[in-house]
């Protein structure tokens, strides 16, 4: 019993006859296992892992580039917007100036036209009045002659008669003109 107890505490004492074969077998099996894994599985695994690492770093780089591109694009758009606003303001200002100019010219033209028409109308009126006066003169003369000839038919000759009337009418016209 005592010797058996001691045996249990001594490493490797249990199967001394198999020590060499066990050591050899475990060593070989471990190395063969490692080689088998290397031959059949490790290649694809490491390839996949490095591919993935590559892809992740590529994706990060791509994202950075895309971000940069977006930033520059945004800057460009903002610049363009500012420029466009300035352009639009310019166009509006120009249009307003043009409109004012046009309005002014229209008003001026209208004033000119109005003046022109007023002038023409005044001339027409004057002309017409003169014509009316002329015709009135003539008619009054004829009328007077007729009246006078009726009254003085027998006492006055035609010539003296006319002379009398003319002088009278002249006096009438002068008074009228005054």
């Amino acid at each position: 019993m005592r010797t058996k107890m001691i045996e249990n505490f001594v490493v490797g004492s249990a199967h001394t006859s198999t020590t060499f074969t066990t050591v050899l077998f475990v060593t070989l099996s471990f190395i063969i296992l490692m080689m088998l894994i290397k031959k059949f599985a490790w290649g694809p695994i490491t390839t996949m892992l490095s591919d993935r690492a590559q892809k992740i770093s590529d994706d990060i780089d791509g994202a950075e580039q895309a971000n940069e591109k977006a930033q520059t694009l945004l800057k460009k758009r903002e610049d363009e917007l500012v420029q466009t606003k300035a352009e639009a303001a310019g166009i509006v200002r120009e249009a307003r100036e043009n409109a004012e100019k046009l309005a002014n010219s229209i008003v001026t033209d209208a004033k000119q036209d109005a003046n022109h028409y007023r002038e023409k109308a005044r001339k027409d009126i004057e002309l017409e009045r003169e014509q009316i006066i002329e015709s009135a003169k003539r008619e009054v003369a004829d009328l007077s002659v007729q009246i006078a000839s009726k009254i003085l038919k027998k006492e006055l000759s035609q010539d003296t008669h006319k002379e009398l009337i003319d002088s009278y009418i002249e006096g009438l016209g002068k008074r009228h003109e005054d």
Binding site: H15, T21, T22, F25, V26, S29, L33, I37, F40, A41
Partner: peptide, 22 residues
Amino acid sequence: DFDLTVIGMTILTCAIIFGFTY
């Protein structure tokens, strides 16, 4: 002398690991 138990269990262990990895 071969310790058949240890040898058998080692082979089984290797088979499990290789099967899993493969």
